[in-house]
């Protein structure tokens, strides 16, 4: 017997855009009945980053068991579902294709609508999964290993990309700095933990701080690497704390400026780097000072997951209808803007 209410529409969400194989059952875009993630971090750790072919192979093996587990944990029979949603871009093409092919096959056999979901839009909706009544307009700081962007959400499905990174994503900079410091992979959580015991004593640059809403992290990464080379005795904790302070300073300064200048009611975050404890602290402080409503999704909703895919799937199914069954993967898919 399922835990769903009769009036609810259940969507099975599938996410395979990078290195997490994930499936979730979500009711009405907000109530998460299950959220299963099979992480490949251990597989990629020895390469210091995601190897696309390794990721694709792991997705094939994990996909069907992850879907089965998501249905089991939700206590939902296929006949109770209203649709199947899968991320079709942006991401690694080989990884995306596993999720899309799986989702379309399930949709065909179970005679359900299929919905192709934009991964960036899914990150935006992670906030709504936990807080359905978030007021818009809302500025979302979307920051992960693959993306760093500021988005203005005027309403459901109504977005404007205010700015994004011109080079490295913030999470990418974390990984590269962690590699230089010999700390392992992924860099974000490791540097975050280390920074707690260090002091931000080094004044690293804040690239393009005063230039609109765009970001640049490549120069910051280089100056951290140069600092390590010139000061081999520098305390790793202090380097980590100083680097993190520079990243967070740039992200939060721009995000709060965007919120104030666009007249947004709140500031939300999304993406793996939004799980960073210093960033979360700084966002809350900034919002308190500026009279904005902060919204920080739980850590598990920040990193890649399928619940956010199921949420967007429900919104899109009800606003645009199903996607065609000849949908493929679009590795460079951009956020849909009006």
């Amino acid at each position: 017997m399922s835990t769903a209410e009769p009036s609810e529409q259940l969507i099975l969400g599938i996410e395979t855009s990078c290195d997490e194989t994930a499936a979730a059952v979500v009711a009405n875009g907000t109530r998460v009945l299950s959220n299963v993630i099979s992480s490949q971090i251990d597989l990629h750790a020895r390469y210091g980053g995601v190897v696309p072919e390794v990721a694709s192979r792991a997705h094939v093996t994990a996909m069907t068991p992850v879907v089965a587990q998501a249905l089991l944990e939700a206590g939902v029979e296929p006949g109770e579902l209203h649709g199947i949603a899968a991320t079709h871009g942006p991401g690694l093409v080989g990884s995306l294709l596993v999720g899309v092919s799986t989702a379309k096959a399930l949709a065909l056999v179970w005679d359900l609508p299929f919905v192709g979901v934009n991964h960036l839009e899914a990150h935006l909706y992670a906030s709504f999964v936990e807080e359905p009544d978030l007021e818009m307009p809302l500025v979302v700081l979307l920051v992960s290993g693959g993306h760093t962007m500021l988005v203005l959400m005027r309403g459901h499905g109504d977005y404007e990309v205010l700015g994004q990174t011109m080079d490295d994503a913030a999470g990418e900079a974390y990984d590269k700095v962690a590699r230089q410091l010999g700390l392992g992979y992924p860099g974000g959580p490791i540097i975050d933990r280390l920074a707690m015991t260090g002091k931000p004593t080094i004044a690293f640059p804040r690239p393009v701080l005063n230039e609109g809403y765009k970001f640049s992290f490549s120069g910051l990464k280089t100056s951290v690497i140069n600092h390590i080379r010139k000061n081999p005795d520098a305390k790793t904790e202090d380097v980590a704390a100083s680097f993190q302070e520079a990243v967070v300073d740039v992200l939060v300064t721009k995000a709060r400026r965007a919120a104030v200048e666009t007249g947004a009611k709140g500031l939300a975050t999304g993406g793996g780097v939004a799980a960073n404890s210093r960033l979360r602290e700084a966002v809350i402080d900034a919002c308190l000072e500026d009279g904005l409503t902060p919204f920080l999704p739980s850590r598990s909703m920040c990193t890649d997951n399928a619940a956010m895919v199921g949420a967007v799937g429900w919104w899109r199914l009800n606003s645009d209808g199903p996607s065609p069954l000849d949908t493929g993967a679009t590795p460079n898919l951009g956020l849909p803007v009006r």
Partner: peptide, 12 residues
Amino acid sequence: PDAVEAKRIAWD
């Protein structure tokens, strides 16, 4: 799988 240097993703 190709054990070439890991390619970071930069799809944005």
